[in-house]
Design a protein around this nucleic acid. Structure first.
Length: 104
DNA sequence: CAACTGACGATAG
DNA sequence: CCTATCGCCAGTT
């Protein structure tokens, strides 16, 4: 086992399917470190373009976009809506429908 | 090498 | 429901 958390996290992020979202905690957990949510953030910042990651499919544990208004929030929301994802009353995503489940 | 930085998460009050 | 705080950890400064 040599794969670093980062490399695996990147692979996993790339596997999040169209029309679905994943949480930072999920990525971290599936990458082997349930406490690595912060590292996922770093990856999205440093490798989203480089590795062509679907960064907009990653949201926080509440089902909300974590970015601030005027700083990508609107962009991410529109990108997700284009994939058919709907936002609830509090701009919250319904995990029952849209949360990515690697097992099916 | 110490301090800082994050698009987080869980917990406590 | 909300704010405050702590823990986590790799990459930067």
């Amino acid at each position: 086992m040599v794969s670093s958390f980062s490399k695996r996290a990147i692979e996993i992020i790339k596997r999040v399917p169209f029309g679905k979202v994943a949480t930072y905690g999920q990525i971290a957990t599936y990458s082997g470190n349930s406490r690595g949510a912060r590292q996922v953030v770093r990856l999205l910042n440093s490798s989203s373009e480089k590795e062509d990651l679907p960064w907009f499919r990653i949201v926080n544990s509440k089902g909300n976009i974590s970015l601030k208004h005027g700083n990508g929030y609107e962009l991410q929301k529109s990108l997700l809506e284009k994939e058919g994802i709907e936002f609830g009353k509090n701009d919250k995503i319904d995990f029952d429908i849209y949360l990515w489940k690697p097992l099916g």
